[in-house]
Simulated scan of single mutants.
Amino acid sequence: MKRIEPLSAARRGVPRWLRRALGPVLLIALWHLVSITGVLPQEVLAGPSVVLTSAAKLVATGELQQAMWVSLGRALAGLAIGGTIGVSLAVLSGLSRLGEDLIDATVQMLRTVPNVALIPLLIIWLGIGEAPKIALIALGTAFPLYLNVYAGIRNVDASLIEAGRTLNLSRSAMIRHIILPGALPSALVGLRYSLGIAWLALVFGEQINATAGIGYLMANAREFFQTDVIVVCLAVYAFLGLAVDFIVRTLERIFLSWRPAFSGT
Rank of each mutant, 00 (worst) to 15 (best):
I134S: 05
W17Y: 07
L145F: 03
S257N: 13
S186W: 11
R20T: 14
R171K: 15
Y146I: 04
T141K: 01
R19W: 11
D245E: 11
T37N: 12
D245S: 14
G215A: 02
A261I: 13
L126S: 02
L188C: 05
N209S: 15
Y237G: 09
R259T: 05
D157K: 06
S49T: 14
S172T: 15
A117E: 07
I28L: 14
A29N: 07
R74N: 00
F143V: 03
A117D: 12
L79H: 07
L79N: 05
A187M: 12
A60D: 13
Q226H: 11
I161R: 13
C233F: 02
L95Y: 07
N168Q: 15
T141R: 05
F143H: 01
V232H: 01
T227H: 07
C233T: 04
V39C: 07
D228I: 01
A60Q: 11
L147Q: 13
L195T: 15
L180W: 11
N168L: 10
L195D: 00
P185A: 07
G94S: 02
P132V: 09
A56D: 13
H177N: 09
S93N: 07
A135W: 03
L22Y: 11
I161K: 01
L191Q: 04
V39K: 06
P185C: 03
V44H: 03
A131M: 12
L45R: 00
I230C: 04
F204I: 09
V189F: 06
A183D: 03
L234S: 09
T106Q: 12
A138P: 02
A29T: 13
W258N: 08
L64D: 02
L217I: 09
T211F: 02
A80C: 12
S54K: 14
P185Q: 08
M1D: 14
L139A: 07
L160Q: 05
G213Q: 03
G62W: 08
W199C: 03
T106R: 10
C233Q: 04
A77R: 11
A90H: 07
G213A: 04
A105Y: 05
A21T: 07
L64W: 01
S172E: 13
Y216V: 05
P260H: 10
L234V: 15
A219M: 15
I124M: 15
L76M: 08
A187S: 09
R12M: 15
Q66K: 09
A56P: 10
T166V: 14
V149I: 02
V229L: 11
W125A: 12
G196P: 12
L242T: 11
R19L: 15
Q108C: 05
S71A: 07
H32R: 13
V156D: 00
G127V: 08
W258D: 06
L26H: 00
L167D: 02
P15F: 12
L72T: 12
A131L: 15
P132R: 07
